[in-house]
Nucleic acid binder design. Structure first.
Lengths: 224, 224
DNA sequence: AAAAGCAGTCACAAACGCGTCACACGCCTG
DNA sequence: CAGGCGTGTGACGCGTTTGTGACTGCTTTT
């Protein structure tokens, strides 16, 4: 299930903690002058006050838009009063929406729930997570506990295929076919070398050995 | 001097011909169902009616955003009445701005002149900041730690497209398509030369190398 | 205990992919 | 029209990747 991340510029975040506790799908964080503190996954909403302690709200809006981490967040500006000129400026600065009046708990939740129910289409970046191992299909990169694993193209494909069929013995034939190698027919013993290289790469990144050998049959990606 | 290109969905274009004649800085063209007819250089504005003969205005908005030729145009939607829900939909479909009421000659000119004079307050997609790298779409210039990078047009477009999809492997095919090159079909190996030239230009400005090669797949703009 | 079967590892040659250069073509400018 | 600039392409060379055979050590079978 996707987690919804909400960033706020006001103190309201703390008063929402109980709500977060009850609804684990939500995450709240307060926006500092530099933008979001954490890098998050999933849908994001930002609520930006027109006036902020260290920074004008408009400038914050622009920074959120300029920062690729938050470029596609839904930004709602909070205006003091319903002034047409302010509204225009907010939209121009990159806000998607605005909200008039003080930032209250119900106002935030209403807005988020309303927008969420409207099923916004988001580009779902494919990403596997198998314990400490994360396979990022967009960046074509694998990490073990956030440590990048230096994989060669074939090794990456192999790891991906194994991770897609966890807890299942894959024969050498399966693996060769799974990597789309047809021509010329690959010697099955070559798979052993692939596995060896993949294991070494994972170990070099400080990882364990999720690849178990099943004698006379093949290999398994062990989950848990 | 830059020419300002304006696209319209209504018949208004013809009645603006005299104005164009007097002010050679402006170019008007009517938007067909497929998007702009001509490929133009320089700042672009598009005015899209809420209702269009062959296509819903919202769909046109999305197409303008999706088409790399017009992705950074300033899109203003023309609403029939000031409905909050319509406004929201327009903005979500990619519009930068909206305008209530019929599309008249003065309304168009006012809007364009107002936005143009307001140079600094542009939509956020006009300025990226990725660490030391800043891409200023308005000035069509990139800087590394404030040092301008001498980029040729194609290199600028390439950098822009890469920076818009950070941490994501883009195949040579993606890049060719992303730069809107169709005719004649570009040899994929040409992309290597583009990348090489772009890297050299960045290095010449004292910059690092944010462009990572992913062997046998493509290139990534590395963020952080 | 010997023999056969199986997997891990190494070294190496061939193939592959990429960076780079020089050149040709088209375009605009003076 | 000459010259400069931007750009696409073929060609060359280098480093990396990868499939394979050989050797080794462990396990199972006879």
């Amino acid at each position: 299930m996707d987690v919804v991340n909400i960033f706020l510029t006001s103190e309201l975040g703390e008063s929402l903690d109980d709500f977060v506790h009850d609804h684990r799908r939500f995450t709240f964080d307060r926006l500092g002058p530099e933008g979001p503190r954490r890098l998050v996954e999933g849908p994001m909403w930002a609520f930006v006050d027109w006036v902020m302690p260290d920074l004008a709200g408009l400038e914050m809006c622009r920074r959120l838009r300029a920062d690729p981490r938050t470029a596609d967040a839904h930004v709602t500006m909070v205006l003091d009063e319903d002034d047409a000129e302010d509204r225009r400026r907010a939209l121009r600065a990159g806000a998607d929406d605005y909200l008039v009046g003080p930032l209250t708990r119900t106002a935030v939740l209403d807005r988020v729930l309303a927008l969420q129910s409207r099923g916004s289409e988001r580009h779902a970046t494919q990403k596997f997570e198998l314990g400490a191992l994360v396979i990022d299909m967009a960046a074509l990169q694998a990490r073990w506990n956030e440590v990048p694993i230096g994989l060669r193209p074939n090794e990456f494909r192999l790891l991906r295929f194994l991770a897609e069929n966890p807890n299942r013995v894959l024969t050498r034939e399966d693996l060769i076919a799974g990597l789309g190698k047809r021509e010329p027919p690959i010697d099955e013993r070559t798979v052993d070398v692939w596995i060896g290289r993949l294991r070494r790469a994972i170990k070099a990144a400080g990882g364990g050995n999720p690849l178990r050998t099943v004698r006379s049959l093949g290999y398994v990606f062990d989950l848990g």
